[in-house]
Nucleic acid binder design. Structure first.
Lengths: 123, 123
DNA sequence: TCAATATTACAAGAACTATTGAAATATTGT
DNA sequence: ACAATATTTCAATAGTTCTTGTAATATTGA
C-alpha cells in the first residue's frame, strides 16, 4: 500500500461523522446501506452525508453501487485489512513477542495479519 | 473506546509525516526511539517532528519516557488494537462469513480481534 | 557556573476542511 | 411528458491544521 493511500484512509476516519458512517456500514456488512438510509439513521442532513460519502469513496474506504435511483454504499473491508497490514509492517522488527505488555495472541496475530517481516531494521 | 478517542487516533495517522513516524516506531517496537533520532532518520526538522510527536502523544498513539535529556517515544500498540476492535465492532452484524469476498480467515479474525457481537442490528 | 546539546513552546501565514442552504441531476411511476 | 423522490453539486463562511523560524527550557559535562 502506498503512503498516500494510507493517509487518505486515515483522514477519512478522522471525522466523527465519517467514522459513524463507516462503523454503520461495517455493521451492515455485505448488505450495505443506501445514502438516504444512512442519513436518516444517523440523523444528519443528506447533503452532508453525501459530501462525506464522496470523500470516503474517493479514498477507497467504501464502495458504491447504483440501484435505480439509490446509491448503495458498503464498507471496503479488504482495504481496511491492507491498511492494518501496512501499519504493522515489520512490527517490532521481526520480534512480535516484544510487543509491549500485550498477551501474545493479541499482537501481530499471524492468523489475521499478513506475514511479519523477519528482518530487523536498525537506523 | 470513545468516538473522540478514535477520531483523534485516526487524525494522528492522517498526515504523512506522522504516519512515517508511527510506522518507524512500530518497527522499533519496545526499544522506541528518541526524538532527535526520529528527526534524523526521516530527515525532517526537529521542531516539526516534535510538534507532531506532541500531538501523537496527546492522542495516545505513542508514549513518551524521559531519559536524561532525551525523550524516548514508543508506539502504543495496545491502543491500536483497541482502535481496530472499535472499528470492527459488530462486524457484519454477527455474520463475519458475509465479509465480502475475502478468505474467511482474513476477515473478523476471532483469534486476533475481540469477540464479534452476535446481535444483528437493523435500522 | 558556563557552554553545548536536545527538545519543546510560541507566533504567523498559507492552505485545507466542515457545515449549511439552495439549486441541479437522475430515476421512477403514472 | 410530468411530478415526486433520491442524491449530488455548488458556493460561502467559519474554523482548523501545517509548516517554518525564532526563542525558551532543560540536561550534560568541564
Amino acid at each position: 500500500m502506498e503512503k498516500q493511500t494510507a493517509t487518505k484512509l486515515f483522514e477519512s476516519l478522522s471525522s466523527g461523522v465519517r467514522l459513524d458512517i463507516y462503523r454503520l456500514l461495517v455493521k451492515c456488512g455485505r448488505g450495505g446501506m443506501v445514502a438516504g438510509q444512512i442519513a436518516a439513521t444517523l440523523d444528519l442532513p443528506p447533503n452532508n452525508v453525501s459530501f462525506h460519502l464522496k470523500g470516503m469513496t474517493h479514498a477507497g474506504l467504501v464502495t458504491v453501487e447504483q440501484e435505480g435511483r439509490f446509491q448503495r454504499y458498503r464498507a471496503n473491508l479488504p482495504q481496511m485489512l491492507e491498511l492494518i497490514a501496512y501499519l504493522t509492517e515489520e512490527c517490532c522488527a521481526g520480534h512480535p513477542e516484544q510487543c509491549l505488555t500485550l498477551p501474545a495472541e493479541s499482537c501481530c496475530p499471524e492468523a489475521a495479519l499478513p506475514p511479519i517481516s523477519t528482518t530487523p531494521s536498525e537506523s
